[in-house]
Design a binder for these strands. Structure first.
Length: 946
DNA sequence: AAGGTCACG
DNA sequence: GACGTACGTGACCTTG
């Protein structure tokens, strides 16, 4: 029996608009804008690649709109009349869409007087009649009417949103519209569509429309029921709007019986002839796609085995970079060229060559991810493209008696490598080299000087993610994006889950391919990215801030911090007792046993069983039971809400802190070693993981007890130094807010001063409001957000915002100028020149756009604060050393706070040094017009130091 | 793996 | 009138 036929209908016109808005503005060698075409090309590539895969296409056609009017305009002249003309640099791309389609040897269908939607509907129905399955590649909500199975023996119709990689079936349609696909047209007719200018009924949006149709079963029934509805605005509008709704129903109806310009069988997909495609890719400078096609490994044909998602992911951005700066000529990665170094003679040969080259990429392989617990398994080096080796050191598994592969003696090898890795004359390049620094430091080697491709990437491209098209800084992603090369992954080499084996058990030939490739790719990335620093203005932040920070943070991680295990265990026990008591009480009040930790079950019990009022929320249709909701219920006298809140607090503290921190104690050092990410936050802040030591409780009394468990070693104390109100100070400086500057200069309480300016007097209430408003400003304000926080009406919140802007006009100017600049250049900048990119700042999608705007307002402030504390950290090490304070150890950074451990006798000498380094950290690069205030405390525990 | 929740600055 | 409404993170739990 022949396999089931599966027709893919690509809504080309809709796709290109979306691609245009979500991809960077590329131009081809002739200067023609081609960003949207590029996106379209990668999508076709991916689809063609799926040929013969489960659910992949056997037949495929692209459907396009022709002209801007259709038969619908005869019915309703206003139809689509309010559409703005397409952007200037999109217009020349329309004809290229046809070229691209032809280059893939795919049929391209369009008919005057018909919209693409109608042709799609007609083809879909015809295919369905023949028993074929159909996938419509689009996310247009009008087309959702077609989803489902029709008639007996009829094929299935679903949709595919390639940008989100999401399949849309009947369930998804029903979720979106609250009705079965057949009734979607009725819902659309009621709610209208502002984009297509379908009127609908004024005052009825998606929610109301979906509710009415679900209730009455059809548009006609809903309209007929209107006269019997109880008197309301809605009733009036339904009565008045009947005609408009009926007209809208006709407009949204898809024409399913168009004459088919070409028979279905013409759409048979049968591989893609490479020549026309190559010509097209070449003409428009899509060089990495061209290379891939020529390599034959990823061509859009039935024979490829590449992961298509990954493929298109890497390419878009690769092309982006390539279009600006041609790649240095490098041969393709050839893993067979790598050497496995198994004798001291060969090792010495590599060391000599590396010294001569003065630049070597280094990568370590280990037994685990935790740099403080892992054993060194081997080291790889690279001196140029394909010029790489792997030096296995501890391969052969855990069985002491099993035969081990030939490898050099561990101690001898390290002794040979140490002078190279420590030599001032040789630059060591790593991808996340902090990890290798820590591993090697634990083996007696102090790696320096260094470069780090991950950190370079971050300095250049922070925030520059392209919609699921990875914007990260991991090696596999960078390799795809900048080199067009897919690396072997750790999973492929070591397996996954239970079957995973330690790297030391990987056979040497495979291990060499993987490990040496990592060094090779790192070398290539360095060659590619390092020159961009100078040309794109990233040198200063990289060389003066982030790179010197690497060894400093590495040292902090190795220090770790002591925690009092017994104290944590005692807290765990207390929390356990309280939790189980509360759980019983909650069950009693609820009258049923249930999982308190399940928001789903809790929501059903609170709002259905116990009948408290409160709405459904979110896509999942689940009740929200978060803190704000529970506090509201508690205010209404719901005793169970209080108990749940307390239960949540205790289980959170127990599982995340008191239990987990005990687990995190390193058996060798007896301390807890976090890992900081220098690329974790788009703004330039650090982040902390495994465990996260940047979110240890402090705001509540009960949580604060956990800080008491972070202690100093015997004879030592902990010293906590934090910047006071640094972000507000920076805002005052950057936005030229004189009253705030004066207040800071005079050492006034800043929130009180704000309260005076805004409300004329300082009371507990006005100060609290002023504080909220101050923070709101830093985060990008909206009247609704502020209203929610202050529990006032949006109008009143707006009035406060107006007052704030009036009293502090610099703030409004700062917001305006920041946004203008980000819209014009694509990125924001800190006072020290750190860039953060905002690719969605001009998105058509309001949520994306306003979200980006708020983040863009905040980024220069949060990022400058991050720069300042980073500069302080870099200077702290030599400053303490100069003062002869060799026993003072910097342990933790928590965004605006540094934690040190030091002998009690050093406190008096260390305090002024730490204070001065932190307070002067902006100078001399930047002269702030406000002082930076530092608060310092000491104690036997972190809690006591505050 | 995703969503909900909550800990921090 | 409809959307969802403060910036930046990471960890843990339940559920599908």
């Amino acid at each position: 029996m022949a396999a089931k036929q599966h027709l893919y209908l690509v809504d080309g016109s809709a796709y290109i608009f979306r691609a245009y808005h979500r991809l960077p503005p590329l131009t081809d060698p002739e200067g023609t804008p081609v960003g949207a075409v590029y996106g379209y090309t990668t999508m076709l590539w991916k689809l063609a690649d799926d040929l013969d895969k489960a659910d992949g296409p056997t037949h495929l056609a692209v459907i396009l709109d022709k002209g801007s009017t259709s038969f619908r305009n005869d019915i309703y002249p206003e139809y689509k009349a309010n559409r703005p003309p397409p952007p200037e640099d999109l217009v020349p791309q329309f004809p290229l869409i046809r070229d691209a389609t032809r280059a893939f040897s795919l049929p391209c269908i369009e008919e005057a007087g018909l919209e693409a939607d109608d042709l799609i509907a007609s083809y879909a129905r015809e295919a369905q009649r023949q028993g074929w399955d159909v996938t419509i590649v689009s996310s247009d909500k009008d087309l959702m009417q077609l989803v489902g199975t029709a008639g007996e023996g009829g094929g299935r119709v679903d949709m595919l949103d390639t940008m989100k990689s999401a399949r849309i079936g009947p369930a998804e349609v029903e979720e979106k519209f609250g009705v079965v696909p057949e009734l979607v047209g009725d819902v659309l007719a009621l709610m209208g569509d502002s984009v297509d200018n379908v009127p609908g009924i004024y005052g009825i949006g998606p929610k109301t429309a979906s509710k009415l149709i679900a209730e009455h079963g059809s548009l006609t029934a809903a309209l007929d029921a209107a006269p019997d509805m109880k008197k309301s605005k809605l009733k009036e509008r339904m009565l008045e709007g009947r005609e408009m709704a009926e007209l809208s129903r006709v407009l949204v109806q898809l024409k399913e019986d168009c004459d088919l310009p070409q028979p279905l069988d013409d759409f048979k997909l049968d591989g893609v002839p490479p020549e026309p495609l190559a010509a097209f890719l070449e003409k428009h400078g899509f060089s990495s796609l061209l290379r891939r096609l020529e390599a034959g490994s990823g061509s859009p044909s039935r024979k490829t085995d590449l992961d298509p998602a990954k493929q298109s992911a890497g390419n878009t951005a690769a092309e982006h970079a390539a279009s600006r700066q041609p790649l240095p000529e490098m041969p393709a990665v050839d893993r067979s060229a790598y050497e496995c170094v198994q004798t001291m003679e060969r090792l010495e040969h590599w060391v000599d060559r590396a010294r001569a080259a003065r630049l070597v990429a280094v990568d370590t392989e280990t037994s685990a991810l935790d740099a403080m617990a892992a054993d060194l398994t081997g080291i790889s080096l690279a001196l140029g493209p394909n010029d790489a080796c792997y030096i296995p050191l501890r391969h052969g598994g855990s069985d002491m008696f099993a035969e081990k592969p030939d490898q050099v003696d561990f101690a001898q090898a390290l002794a040979a490598l140490k002078p190279l890795l420590e030599s001032d004359a040789v630059l060591k390049i790593g991808q996340n080299i902090k990890y290798d620094i820590n591993i090697l430091a634990r083996n007696g080697i102090a790696v320096a000087p260094i470069d780090d491709t991950m950190i370079i990437s971050f300095a250049l491209d922070a925030g520059r993610s392209l919609d699921g098209i990875g914007g990260g800084h991991g090696m596999d992603e960078l390799s795809e994006r900048h080199l067009g090369h897919t690396t072997l992954t750790f999973k492929e080499v070591c397996g996954i889950g239970k079957k995973q084996i330690p790297f030391g058990e990987v056979p040497l030939d495979k291990a060499t391919e993987y490990a040496a490739e990592d060094a090779d790719v790192t070398w290539r990335l360095h060659a590619h990215l390092k020159p961009r620093l100078a040309s794109e203005g990233g040198t200063k932040i990289y060389e003066r801030v982030d790179r010197p920070l690497i060894p400093v943070v590495a040292q902090m991680e190795r220090h770790g911090i002591k925690v009092d295990r017994a104290r944590l265990a005692k807290l765990s026990e207390e929390f356990a007792v309280e939790t189980s008591r509360l759980e019983k009480e909650i069950h009693t009040v609820a009258g049923i046993q249930f999982t308190v930790g399940s928001p789903k079950q809790l929501g059903d019990i609170l709002f259905d069983k116990l009948g408290y009022k409160g709405g459904r929320k979110g896509k999942s249709g689940q009740y929200s039971t978060d803190q704000a909701i529970l506090e509201r219920l508690s205010g209404e006298g719901a005793e169970i809400a209080d108990k749940v809140l307390e239960w949540r607090q205790l289980t959170k503290l127990k599982s995340t802190y008191t239990d987990a921190l005990q687990q995190a104690i390193n058996p060798e050092t007896g301390r807890v070693h976090t890992s900081y990410s220098l690329v974790g936050a788009q703004t330039g802040r650090l982040s902390s993981t495994d465990p996260n030591l940047q979110n240890i409780p402090i705001r509540t009394e009960i949580g604060r007890q956990i800080r008491e468990a972070f202690v100093a070693d015997a004879g030592n104390v902990l010293l906590a130094a934090d910047y006071s109100q640094i972000e507000l100070r920076l805002a005052a400086h950057m936005a030229d807010v004189d009253p705030l500057r004066e207040a800071f200069a005079a050492g006034e309480d800043i929130h009180s001063r704000t309260a005076t300016e805004m409300f004329g007097e300082v009371t507990r209430d006005t100060r609290a409001r002023a504080k909220t408003i101050n923070f709101a400003i830093l985060y990008g304000i909206s009247r609704w957000g502020l209203a929610g926080r202050l529990k006032v009406e949006p109008d009143e919140a707006q009035a406060m915002i107006d007052t704030y802007f009036q009293r502090f006009p610099g703030i409004q100017r700062y917001i305006h100028e920041t946004l203008e600049s980000v819209r014009a250049r694509g990125y924001s900048e800190t006072l020290f020149g750190r860039k953060t990119w905002f690719p969605r700042i001009s998105s058509k999608n309001q949520n994306e756009r306003t979200g980006s705007e708020r983040a863009a307002i905040n980024a220069p402030i949060q990022g400058t604060s991050a720069d300042i504390i980073k500069r302080a950290m870099v200077r702290m090490v030599p400053a303490l050393q100069e003062a002869g304070l060799d026993d003072v150890r910097m342990l933790l950074q928590v965004h605006d706070e540094l934690v040190f451990e030091l002998p009690e006798g050093d406190v008096a000498a260390a305090k002024p040094v730490i204070e001065r380094v932190m307070a002067e950290a902006a100078q001399p690069s930047v002269s702030l017009s406000v002082p930076l205030g530092i608060d310092i405390g000491t104690g036997v525990s972190w809690g006591a130091a505050h």
